[in-house]
Simulated assay, not measured.
Amino acid sequence: MPDRRTQLLDAALAVVADKGMKGLTHRAVDAEAQVAQGTTSNYYRSRATLVGAVLERLLELDSALLAEQGPAGPPKDVEELANQLASLVLALAGRHADLTRARLALSLDKPESVTAGHFRLVGGLRQALAALGVPDPEARARDVADYGDGVLLHLLTVRRDEDPDPKAIAAAVRRLVGN
Results as ranks from 00 to 15, higher is better:
L58H: 09
R4K: 07
A105L: 00
V15M: 06
D161M: 14
A28P: 02
A28H: 03
A64T: 13
A36I: 01
K22Q: 09
P74D: 14
K76I: 12
L65K: 01
P71C: 05
V89E: 09
G94A: 08
L61I: 12
V78S: 05
K110T: 00
N83F: 04
A168I: 14
A72N: 03
E32C: 05
G73M: 07
G150H: 05
R126K: 11
A33W: 13
A33T: 05
V89M: 10
Y147R: 10
A86R: 06
D98V: 12
L121S: 07
Y44K: 09
R160Q: 09
L81A: 15
L59E: 09
V15Y: 06
D109W: 01
D165A: 02
L104I: 14
L125N: 04
F119K: 09
G70Y: 08
G117R: 15
D10P: 13
Q7P: 04
R45H: 14
A102E: 03
Q34Y: 03
Q127F: 03
R95Y: 12
L55H: 09
D163R: 15
P137N: 07
A130R: 14
S41D: 04
V54A: 08
A170P: 07
E79R: 14
L61V: 12
D163W: 14
V173H: 12
R95F: 02
V144C: 07
G123A: 00
H118K: 10
A97K: 09
T157S: 04
G133C: 13
R4Q: 05
L153T: 10
A105Q: 06
A48M: 08
D143Y: 14
V173F: 11
G150I: 01
Q84E: 03
A168Q: 12
A72T: 06
S87A: 15
A168G: 05
E162Q: 15
N179D: 14
V78R: 06
V151A: 15
R140I: 10
L156I: 04
V144F: 06
R120Q: 07
E162I: 11
A97T: 03
L50D: 02
T115W: 10
A28D: 02
L132S: 02
L65C: 08
E60N: 01
L99K: 03
A172V: 00
V29K: 11
V51M: 07
V35R: 06
T100Y: 00
H154C: 08
Q127E: 11
I169F: 15
G178Y: 12
T6R: 15
L65M: 13
T157R: 10
T49Y: 00
S87N: 12
S107D: 11
P135S: 03
R47V: 01
L55E: 13
R45Q: 14
Y44R: 10
Q127H: 09
V134W: 00
V51K: 06
D10E: 15
E80H: 11
A31Q: 10
Y44V: 05
L156Y: 01
